[in-house]
Structures are given as C-alpha cells and as structure tokens.
C-alpha cells in the first residue's frame, strides 16, 4: 500500500514537471503564432495553447496519452497505425534476440568456467565487444546479413543478442563459480564428474545470478531491437515509429512510441522478476 502511494507521488511529480516544461518549451511557438495573427495572448490562453499544439517541441502528457489510446485501443491490431502492431514487431525480435543472446551467454559462461583457455581468452573479447557503439555496428550487421540473403526479423534479433549476451556471460560466470567450498568438497568426496557437478550444484546455485542477468539482458535486447530498426529505414516496429516521427516532426508520435517501449520493457522485466520470485522461493534460495 505504501509503495503504491509513493509510486503515485513520484509519477504525479514527474507529470507536473512535464506540464511545466511543456509550457516553457512550447511558448515561443505559441507567442510567434499569436504575433503573426496580430493577437495578444493572456496567460491562460498561452498555457492552454502550449498544451494543445499539433507539433509541439514537447507534447503534454495528455496529448501523448490520447495518442496512445487512439493508436492502441481504437485501432485494429493489424493496422499499420496500431502501436500494438509495431510493438509486437519489435517485441518478437527482442524475444528471439534474447533467446539467442541468453543461450550464447550461458554457453560461453559454461566454457569459461570449465576451460582455462576460454577463461583467459573469451572474457577480454566479450568486454571489447561492448565497447563498440551499437549504433556503429548495427548497420554493418544488417548490410552484411542482407547481402547473404538474411532479412527481416533475424538481423534485428542478432543486434539484440549482441547487447544481451554480455550481462548473461558476466552474471553466469559469477553464478557458476558461486557454490560454497563445502558443497563442492561434498561432490568431490563422491567422486562426481564435472557434468554431475554442473547439473547438481553449479547450475542450481547460479539461479539468482541468472535471473539478475536476464533482467538486464532483456532490456538490453529491447534497446537492440529498436536500434536495429533505425538504420534500415524499417517501416514496422517501434524504432520505425521513432524514425518516421522524427522525419515528419511528429513529436507526439515519437513520445508515444517511447512510452510504449518503456511499458514493454517494464512488462518484460516484471515478468522475469515474478518468475525469479516464484522459482527462487521454490528452490529455497530467497
């Protein structure tokens, strides 16, 4: 209950600041327009004008909200104007990329933990890979894959997985190495094989680390999918909405796509958090 109240207070404060900022950013245009029409604007008219422009520098919250309403509830989800349609496009490549990235990350972590050569060699490369700006490498990936005939969802998913594998590697390496000495010693006295040690001890022990990484990974995946839609001039997906919005100065469209992306990210992380809670409780690890 208290957390609900505090969340509402914070959101309320943000919206309040947002309205103030809309007034100050959009007033120049409103005054300009009035001057050209030879009108004098009172304070009240000025404020109302800044909150209802067609292409404001900063759209007011209710403008974004009504745009969101119009493009989700009032549109069929098969329509190209439906934000749900665009969200699904982005979400599907996010999920595929998340799957690829997570699998790759877990496999690399297993290799690093079990093989000294991989331990020495893979980690520096994994770190180096993350120092390259994704915006620089995303067009290359799309162009290269396109030239070998891979198009559509997969190139975007690969950009997602490029961002997503890293937190999984780091988390899982730590997680797979986290069993207590006594637990490892116990398996040693049973003369357990490495595979048995992995399945019966290392993997279960790494679960809290895995979930922490997955939460970071899935939001990185979403960012990757959106970034992957920008350089291709894609016509579908949240990234495409952002791009189209910026071409035509449709700030309301940009902001509603941004809010949508944020909600999708929150939902994805929320689902993982719930899964984490249930799973770790069942495993007695909370």
């Amino acid at each position: 209950m208290r957390s609900v109240v505090s969340i509402c207070v914070v959101v309320g404060a943000l919206i309040f600041v947002w309205y103030l900022a809309a007034v100050s950013l959009n007033s120049t245009w409103a005054l300009d327009k009035a001057k050209r029409a030879g009108l004098e604007l009172g304070t009240k008219e000025l404020i109302l004008d800044t909150w209802s422009q067609e292409k404001p520098k900063l759209p007011a919250p209710h403008q974004v909200a009504s745009e969101l309403w119009k493009t989700t509830v009032e549109k069929k989800i098969t329509s190209k104007r439906s934000l749900i349609f665009h969200s699904w496009i982005t979400l599907s490549s996010t999920l595929v990329g998340f799957l690829i990235g997570t699998s790759l990350g877990i496999l690399l972590a297993i290799g690093i933990v079990h093989n000294n050569a991989m331990n020495m060699s893979v980690m520096p490369w994994a770190i180096a890979s993350q120092t390259i700006p994704i915006l620089a490498i995303a067009p290359m990936i799309i162009v290269v894959l396109n030239s070998i005939g891979v198009q559509g969802l997969l190139p975007k998913a690969i950009i997602s997985s490029y961002l997503c594998f890293f937190p999984v590697v780091v988390g899982m390496v730590k997680g797979l190495r986290s069993p207590d000495k006594i637990d490892t010693d116990l398996l040693h006295t049973y003369n357990a094989t490495n595979a048995q040690k992995f399945w019966k001890l290392r993997l279960p022990t790494s679960m809290p680390f895995l979930f922490a990484s997955l939460k970071v990974g899935i939001s990185a995946s979403l960012v990757g999918a959106i970034v992957g839609e920008l350089p291709t001039g894609a016509v579908r997906g949240l990234g495409a909405r952002l791009l189209a919005g910026s071409y035509y100065g449709q700030t309301i469209q940009i902001w509603s796509a941004l809010i949508m992306a944020a909600m999708v990210a929150a939902a994805l992380v929320g689902i993982l958090a719930l899964l984490q809670k249930v799973m770790l409780k069942r495993m007695g690890m909370t």
Partner: peptide
C-alpha cells in the same frame, strides 16, 4: 579410495542443498 567411494564425509555444517 575416494574414487572407489570408500568413505562418507560429514562436514562441520550440514551442507544440504536448499533446493
């Protein structure tokens, strides 16, 4: 002896796996 599983070992802590 360990490889032929000649002994059982009890540690200071129970060392039970919580899951």
């Amino acid at each position: 002896a360990r490889e032929s599983r000649a002994y059982g070992y009890v540690f200071q802590a129970p060392g039970l796996y919580p899951w």
